[in-house]
Simulated scan of single mutants.
Amino acid sequence: MTTTHPAGEDPGRVSQDDLDVLRLQLGRLPRGVVGIAARCVCGRPTVVRTAPRLPDGSPFPTTYYLTHPAAVKGCSTLEAEHLMDELNARLSADPELAEAYRAAHADYLARRAELGTPTEIEGVSAGGMPTRVKCLHALVGHALAAGPGTNPIGDLTIGTLTERGLWDPARCSC
C-alpha cells in the first residue's frame, strides 16, 4: 500500500489531524491509539495501532483496528456473505495455509508485546487466529499494518475486496 506523508514525518505518528479524521471515521473519539499502522494512499488513517490496555484499564486484544470506512464496509459485506466459512474450509484443507496463519498469529502477538502484555489477553490475538477465521476486519488490519505475506487470510481478504470492487488499498476512496 502506497502512502503519502510530509518529507521526514514518521508515517506511524499520530497527529491531531489524524485524530480528527479517526473521530469522523469511527463516529467517536478513538481509544488507546498509539500509532497509525497503515494509511490510505491519500495519507489518511486506514488502520490504527492500539494499546493492549485502554486508558480505562481494560485489556484490548485488537492491536490493529481497521478504520477506513470503505474497507470496514467491504469487510462487513464479505462477512455477511459468509466468506469466513470458505476461508475456514481452506484453512482445514490446506496445511501450508494453516501454518502461515499460525505464523501470522505469532507475528501479531510479538507486535502487540512491543506495547505491553496484559495477562488477561495473553496468547489471544485477533480475528480468530491461529485456528479459525472470525473477524475479517481484524485480519485485514493486521495484513495492512504488517505488509503482504504476513497474514495470509488478511491478504486473501484484501484480494477479494479488490477483485469485487468493494475496496482497493491502492486507490483512495476517502
Rank of each mutant, 00 (worst) to 15 (best):
Ile153Arg: 00
Gly35Leu: 08
Ala126Lys: 11
Ala113Asp: 15
His142Met: 13
Ser58Phe: 12
Asp94Pro: 05
Arg39Asn: 04
Leu78Thr: 02
Ala38Ile: 04
Pro61Ala: 13
Ala113Val: 05
Pro45Trp: 05
His82Ala: 13
Gly147Tyr: 06
Thr77Met: 09
Arg90Trp: 05
Leu66Ala: 06
Leu115Gln: 08
Leu97Ala: 00
Tyr101Ser: 03
Thr160Tyr: 02
Met84Lys: 13
Glu9Phe: 14
Val21Pro: 00
Ile121Gly: 06
Val41Phe: 01
Glu122Trp: 06
Gly8Cys: 10
Met84Gly: 01
Ala38Cys: 06
Val72Arg: 10
Pro169Asn: 04
Arg132His: 14
Gly74His: 06
Cys42Arg: 10
His5Tyr: 15
His105Val: 03
Ala145Asp: 05
Trp167Glu: 11
Ile36Asp: 07
Ala70Leu: 14
Phe60Pro: 00
Pro59Trp: 09
Val14Ile: 11
Gly116Phe: 04
Leu156Cys: 03
Asn151Lys: 04
Lys134His: 09
Ile121Leu: 10
Leu161Tyr: 04
Arg31Gly: 01
Ala126Cys: 10
Gly32Cys: 09
Gly116Ser: 04
Cys172Asp: 10
Glu114Trp: 03
Ala51Asn: 08
Val14Ala: 06
Gly141Trp: 05
Arg39Cys: 04
Pro11Glu: 12
Ala71Tyr: 01
Val41Leu: 05
Cys174Ser: 07
Gly154His: 02
Lys73Cys: 04
Pro55Lys: 07
Ala106His: 09
Ala145His: 03
Leu115Asn: 08
Pro45Tyr: 07
Asp18Cys: 10
Thr67Leu: 05
Gln16Asn: 13
Ala106Met: 04
Met84Glu: 14
Arg112Trp: 08
Asp85Cys: 00
Ala146Phe: 05
Leu136Pro: 00
Cys42Pro: 05
Ala100His: 08
Ala80Val: 00
Pro130Gln: 06
Gly165His: 12
Gly32Phe: 03
